[in-house]
Design a protein around this nucleic acid. Structure first.
Length: 499
RNA sequence: GGUCGGAUGGCCGAGUGGCUAGGCAGAGGUCUGCAAAACCUUUUACACCGGUUCGAAUCCGGUUCCGACCUCCA
């Protein structure tokens, strides 16, 4: 590694220099989505942040194995316990849409995959399904039982936190103490059903017994049932990344109980803490409140792309969403609104324009005349990215370069070939390769007939202007504008944009 | 109630002790027949009250407000 990456480790609550377990290799696990409905904006953030990490590691020459799971085993809608109907989310949706649970999972997985890919997010190396790892999960439960840290009750298996806590420390990640959790289980806690099966209310299910009406179920040593929610990530991360791996990523809302339980399961089964760096992204908010499926305030990713949501004035390009998210640090909340997106769109367009100018319009000169400190700029870019992925800072530095590029374009500054190539190289590296921003095609798909007609109109208008027939010139401009065609006059001539 | 985080100019959002973050909007300018676009320049800030310090948005204490988790959640 050429640069010193620092990451904020949730378990120690501080920035730590990143050191891989094996030199030149890094293993990353991201808690992916439960595929029972369409992805909303919140789902993009974790995937995007890991994408940045992966891009960085690859640039630094590390071999990356990036695992992002798909949860296609329905968790029960109500706690880890059985509610009145005994349905899980996937079964419920399957009933509703009259489909097999696996059809539901496939359908929404496809949607997720598509929506995420449009954001320029690289695919993971392994994308395992929870349903494809039932055997591994059962094996892990057996191990935990043999360690005396889980117990069976009526065909279900629960994790015994009290037993676990005698040897290990439950709560290392979230900072929760067992006593507090007992004390906290007071009047304000919701009363959960079937708690009597558990020794303690904070115990969680490793395996749940399924009755006949439950669609997704598998045979196990404890009878037919399905695995508990926390187990899949432990089983799959162990299988593909080992008992101890480098980076575990997920949303902050998963920190407790999900990740805490993962730690407990792994430690019970493998006698070691599974992860070196616990990373968590913050939430996307809307009017200051977390966006979530369960809160029904989510904006779907596809709604954003298509503009068909009451809160949106218009559709937005996926790259605008990517830029919008990069403007905030991944550990901060980011407040979503139509206005904020519009602002991001303008900023992004400006950066893209500058990018195109740099690549296509700049020409080197004999001698450099400028006020650029390349060394400092370059160093600041690398430092910003490596300082826990400070993408807002990286963008600010790219906007600084945008000003330089304009100085060159208007002829105030000039760069010799070496300097110009250097500017191009670094700009492309950060803009494209590391931030993963792609250039929207400036030349929209204009068919040749349309170009011809527009060329004629522009020519007529040009002639009119030359003969000072401004009435005609303005009429052409106004009429076209009413059709959504905007004429843009520049020194070198007139171009047009269709909205 | 418990655990944890946050409060920055009209909006979004960086910044951990002294030096303009940045984007959008606003203002002024260049260009233009006019306008738009583009480019250049630029105003407004650090929730409140104390304290530490030569110096605090940044550290400490308190207050108020907001949020996340403790149910499924990215």
């Amino acid at each position: 590694m050429k640069h010193n990456l620092k990451l904020y480790n949730s378990i120690n609550k501080r920035l730590e220099p990143f050191r891989p377990i094996q030199a030149d290799f890094v293993g990353i696990y991201l808690c992916g989505p439960t595929v029972y409905s369409s992805p909303h904006l919140g789902h993009t953030r974790g995937a995007l942040t890991v994408d940045l990490l992966v891009r960085w590691f690859k640039y630094e020459g590390l071999k990356v194995r990036y695992v992002r799971n798909i949860t296609d085993v329905g968790h029960l809608t109500n706690d880890a316990d059985i509610d009145a109907s005994g349905e899980d989310k996937l079964s419920k949706k399957a009933n509703l849409e009259k489909l097999e649970p696996m059809e539901i999972a496939q359908k929404y997985y496809n949607e997720y995959d598509q929506a995420i890919s449009k954001l320029g997010i690289l695919k993971p190396d392994i994308e395992p399904l929870a349903s494809g790892h039932i055997i591994e999960q059962i094996e892990m439960i057996k191990k935990i039982i043999s360690e005396g840290m889980a117990y069976q009750k009526n065909g279900s298996v629960y994790f015994d936190i009290e037993a676990y806590n005698k040897k290990y420390n439950y709560g290392v990640l979230s900072g929760r103490k067992l006593e507090d959790m007992i004390a906290g289980a007071g009047e304000e806690r919701r009363t959960l059903e079937r708690q009597d099966e558990k020794k303690n209310s904070f115990d969680f299910a490793l395996w749940k017994k399924a009755d006949k009406s439950h669609i997704m179920q598998w045979p196990s040593p404890w009878g037919n049932g399905f695995p508990g929610w926390h187990l899949e990530c432990s089983a799959m991360s162990k299988k593909y990344l080992g008992e101890r791996f480098d980076i575990h990523f997920g949303g902050m809302d998963l920190l407790f109980p999900h990740h805490e339980c993962e730690i407990a399961q792994c430690q019970a089964a493998h006698k070691q803490h599974p992860v070196n760096y616990w990373l968590h992204n913050n939430m996307i908010t809307i009017n200051g409140k977390k966006m979530a499926r369960s809160l029904n305030n989510g904006i779907l990713v596809n709604e954003l792309y298509k503009g068909n949501n009451a809160l949106l004035e218009k559709p937005f390009d996926p790259m605008v969403l990517r830029f919008f998210l990069l403007q905030a640090h991944y550990r901060s909340t980011i407040d979503f609104s139509n206005e904020a997106l519009k602002a991001a769109e303008k900023g992004y367009d400006r950066l893209v324009k500058t990018y195109n100018l740099l690549i296509h319009e700049t020409q080197s000169a004999e001698n450099s005349v400028h006020k650029i400190n390349f060394e400092e700029w370059e160093k600041n870019l690398f430092d910003a990215f490596a300082e826990d992925l400070n993408t807002p800072m990286v963008l600010a530095l790219l906007f600084e370069a945008a000003k330089w590029i304009n100085q060159i374009i208007i002829g105030k500054w000039q760069l010799n070939e070496t300097d110009l190539e250097r500017l191009k190289k670094i700009f492309i590296l950060f803009f494209g390769e590391l931030l993963g921003l792609q250039v929207k095609e400036l030349e929209q798909i204009k068919n040749s007939k349309e170009k011809e007609i527009m060329g004629i109109l522009i020519e007529i208008r040009k002639n009119a202007k030359e003969h000072k027939n401004y009435a005609l010139a303005d009429e052409i401009r106004t009429e076209l504008e009413q059709e959504g065609i905007k004429l843009i006059d520049t020194k070198s001539g007139t171009s047009y944009e269709i909205s």
